[in-house]
Simulated scan of single mutants.
Amino acid sequence: MKAWSFSRTSLRVHWGDGSAERLAGELDRVGSVRPMAVCTPSVARDNDLLSRVERCTRRGFADVLTDVRPHSPVEMVQAVAGRLQAADAIVVIGGGSAMVTARAANILCCEEGELEALATRRDAGGGLVSPRLTRPKLPMMVLATTPTTAAPKAGAAVTRPESTSRLALFDPATRARCVIVDPELTAGAPDTVARDAALNALVMALEGMTTRRRNLYADAALSHAVRQLPGRIVALAKQRDDPAVRVELTLLALLSGEGTDSTGGGLTAALSHSVGHRVHVHNGLVDSILLPHVLRLASRRDPSALTSVGELLGVAPVDVADAVEELLAPLSPTRRLREIGVAESDVPLFADSAMDDFASRGTTFPLHERDLEQVLEEAL
């Protein structure tokens, strides 16, 4: 029998009314006196929200860094990293983009190397390897405004405007120490942003149950997320004034993030990373288009990889792709890549880029560039 391991992060999660008040205690726990906030411009523009969070620190922010944009462009990460040098902790206020940007900037600030040297790269044998990053990192706290999967994770990715590929960074020391899910903070995100983030969490949970690193402990978190997320996404549209829906979505996304931190991503994630930042569309929307087609590839190449998802959905492995497509159809308004601006001529470029994405290693069968091209063509 193959040897396995599963480790839970030291993540502390607080949720419900007034949970933002827990921030001061969490900063005390790590001895912080100069926390810096990293947030999106939309959060920074909400003076009431930002002022409330700052009051909850009971020490104020040394600085507020608002240079956060989707997909974490390299020049933005570099700018944030430079300003983090005066901090002793990071308070992230926002969703996945803010979290990933803060994590990448934390690595760049504390390792003091070039991004290219710190990122995952191919070794002499053609395999993907991540350099060991050993310097201490700033402790990170997250006040989530959307259903982000990013907080329990150790990875980050930086995009370059001239490239479809990303610089992937990996450092367990940058996992969040705590996540706070306060209804007052989750209420402000537009419905579409919350929905797309929740779609990302659902697709990640489904794909996490199919990768080569899938395991019993991760399946416990991921299967619960898969059972609960579709109904909560539907409720988001029907119960806009119910703060509990957004809180539950965010907690379920954390479960998906923790589970997939163990199982790793798969081909859907690799392709979505390549497509999303080039067409300026949320990864969740791209994920929901691609996953059924990735699962059809898996059913042709290794149906056994779909056994756990099939058992969860009550179908045979060969029928998993159709069942997942049926599950996702009412949750996402977009079902084809051409609807988000992908052209047939883009296929070779996106396929080539995805082959270099660390998540592509998650498949249980040998992967060739033509496989990726076929998935993209079927999804057009």
Score class of each variant (00 low, 15 high):
P35S: 05
L372A: 04
S272C: 08
T334K: 07
L202V: 04
A244Q: 14
G208I: 02
H277D: 04
V294A: 13
C110K: 09
H224P: 04
L27D: 02
H280V: 07
M99T: 14
S19M: 04
G31P: 00
E114I: 02
A124C: 09
L118F: 02
V80H: 06
H224L: 15
L312K: 10
A119W: 02
P183V: 07
G94L: 09
Q374E: 14
F61P: 03
A218L: 06
H368N: 09
P41K: 04
H14Q: 08
T101W: 07
D357W: 05
T145N: 00
M76H: 15
C39E: 04
D17A: 14
L267A: 06
T268Q: 13
V245K: 06
A329S: 14
R336C: 10
E75Y: 14
K137P: 03
T149D: 04
E75F: 12
F6Y: 13
G127T: 09
A86Q: 15
L291D: 07
R177P: 04
V92Y: 01
V203T: 10
I90W: 06
R103Q: 13
A270G: 02
A253I: 01
V193H: 09
L65C: 14
L169M: 00
V315D: 00
R122S: 13
P136A: 03
A253E: 01
Y217W: 14
D17E: 15
C39P: 03
L297N: 13
V158S: 00
A270M: 01
M1C: 10
T146M: 04
R296L: 06
T40L: 06
E325H: 11
V347C: 01
R338G: 03
L206H: 11
A316E: 15
T148L: 00
R212V: 11
F170D: 09
E311M: 12
S308K: 11
S256A: 15
T120L: 09
V347Q: 00
A221K: 14
S274R: 03
D63I: 07
A237G: 15
P73K: 07
H293P: 05
S262L: 01
G208N: 06
R103M: 13
V234F: 08
N215R: 06
I107V: 14
L380H: 11
S32K: 03
Q228N: 08
D371P: 03
T134W: 08
L297G: 09
M204W: 08
L372P: 03
H14E: 13
L115W: 02
L337P: 00
L167I: 02
S51F: 09
A79T: 15
A220R: 12
T250W: 10
T66Q: 12
T268G: 05
G25E: 08
M1D: 10
V286Y: 05
R361A: 14
R160T: 12
A81R: 00
R45W: 10
V234S: 09
N200P: 02
